[in-house]
Amino acid sequence: MSIISGMRCRGDRAMTTFRSFPVRLPSDFRYWTVLDPAYRVVVEADDFLLHHRMGRDGAESTSQSYAASLALFFDWAASIRKPWRESAPYLGRFVYWLQHYRPDQVAARRTAVVRGPRRVNAIMAAVRSFFRHAASVGQLDPEVLGVVYDSFDTNRVNEAARGARYHRASARHRLSEPDSPIVNAAGEDVAELIRAARNARDRFIVIAMWRMGLRRGELAGLRRSDVHFVPDASQLGCGFRGTHLHVVRRTNPNGAWAKSRRQRVVPADWLTVQAYDQYIVERDRVDPRGRSDFLLVNLFADPVGTPMRPGGINEVLVRLSSRAGLVRPVHPHMLRHSFATNVAEHGGTADVLKELLGHAWISSSDVYLHPSPERLRAVVERVPGPRTTGDGQ
């Protein structure tokens, strides 16, 4: 399929564009694909996006982001009138195009930066992943990958298709990203969110993410059967002692997705259990039939009783942040960062964080180990000074 079919241009401005599009299969499985300007599926992109969605880390949100990135890539390739398979030598121009292209501006006026380094790098990561997959299934000459990576062995195409760390580290066309501080949700801000919540469900969402470090996709994907908030879970067939819940990766109709393939257990403290109990009482009152096994359901908007989508958690936090008058809105990952920081500051080591947060590699937890200036000073001041000898020297 030609990627420039159906593209009409006025100068260098595309009248129609490639676009990302959601697909729902009869099984309720959702993923995103790419349509060309004539509303036809771009077959190679569709093959890659479905393969990625069904793979190890195939969250629907990632599928959506990748589809949007590939739509931009195909738009650019059409603008330079190159089939995508022949575009690799020009990817440096694509990076510049991403930084400055905006559909409502003519080329002569494209001076402002439209996309920053972080967004450009994310788009390029999607394009590289697409190239790797295409090479692995015979849709692209593996030699082309030598243009995409600084070091590439054509005998390792299958490893490249799996996203081997070696190839991620040697990728070309990567912009330098400015260091940005990790932003936690301060304890005072979390308290304001809890006070701003007008129902038990929203309070439980804030407390569960803050006290358990759950990702939004993990929280939205929980089933009631995953929650073991009882002193002795042996009656539930579980050998883990104390109140806890199980994070399980499933394909969920609400698009929720647990990033880690490995099931993990997260302990729950009394504050989380109390918030949960209050939420269940509220849920049983508003939705007495309770037909959904999903833990989080819509209670205050139609259709009542249906599972909340992960994006609904963001909407809850935005609404609470506004109601609380916070200068910076709190988003889900800020609560996860706060949980990890609190665990680290109270003696939690990297291996503990790895298990609690569901990371595959212990090094992935390093980003959460960012001690405060006060903690750094306290550690330095605890180091003893030189001891004097018996003769006073």
Rank of each mutant, 00 (worst) to 15 (best):
M1G: 12
M1Y: 04
S2D: 10
I3S: 09
I4M: 11
I4D: 11
S5D: 14
S5P: 00
C9D: 01
G11Q: 10
D12N: 14
A14F: 11
M15G: 13
R19D: 01
R19T: 06
P22E: 05
P22I: 07
P22W: 03
R30P: 06
R30Y: 04
Y31G: 01
Y31A: 04
T33L: 05
D36Q: 04
D36Y: 02
A38I: 02
V42E: 00
V43N: 07
A45V: 05
D46T: 08
D47G: 03
F48V: 02
F48D: 03
L50G: 06
H52I: 04
R53I: 05
G55Q: 07
R56L: 13
G58N: 09
G58Q: 07
G58K: 05
A59H: 06
A59L: 06
S61E: 09
S61A: 15
T62N: 06
Q64K: 15
S69Q: 00
L70H: 01
A71P: 02
L72Y: 03
D75T: 13
K82C: 10
L91G: 03
V95A: 07
R102F: 06
R109C: 10
R110D: 13
V114P: 01
R118N: 11
R119T: 15
A122T: 09
A122P: 01
A126C: 03
R128T: 02
S129G: 08
F131Y: 15
R132V: 00
H133T: 00
P142T: 05
V144W: 01
L145D: 03
G146E: 06
G146R: 05
G146A: 02
V147Q: 13
N158V: 13
E159Y: 01
A161T: 00
S170Y: 01
H173K: 00
R174T: 14
L175K: 08
S176G: 09
S176E: 14
D179N: 11
L193A: 06
R195K: 14
N199I: 02
F204V: 02
F204T: 00
W210L: 08
W210R: 04
G213F: 01
R215L: 11
R216S: 13
R216M: 10
E218H: 09
L219Y: 05
F229R: 03
V230A: 12
A233Y: 04
G237K: 12
R241S: 14
G242W: 02
H244R: 11
G255Q: 08
R264C: 07
V265Q: 07
V266M: 07
A268H: 00
D269E: 07
W270G: 00
W270Q: 12
Q274C: 06
Q274E: 15
V281Y: 05
R283L: 13
R285K: 02
R291K: 14
F294S: 07
L295H: 11
L295Y: 08
V304I: 15
P307V: 08
P307S: 10
R309C: 08
P310A: 10
G311I: 03
L317F: 06
R319A: 11
S321T: 08
S322D: 08
P329D: 03
M334F: 09
L335R: 04
L335F: 08
L335D: 09
T341G: 07
A344H: 14
E345R: 14
A350P: 01
V352D: 12
L353G: 10
L353C: 12
H359F: 10
I362E: 14
S365V: 12
Y368M: 12
P371A: 10
V379S: 13
V383K: 12
P384F: 07
G385Q: 12
G385E: 12
P386Y: 09
P386K: 11
T388D: 10
G392V: 13
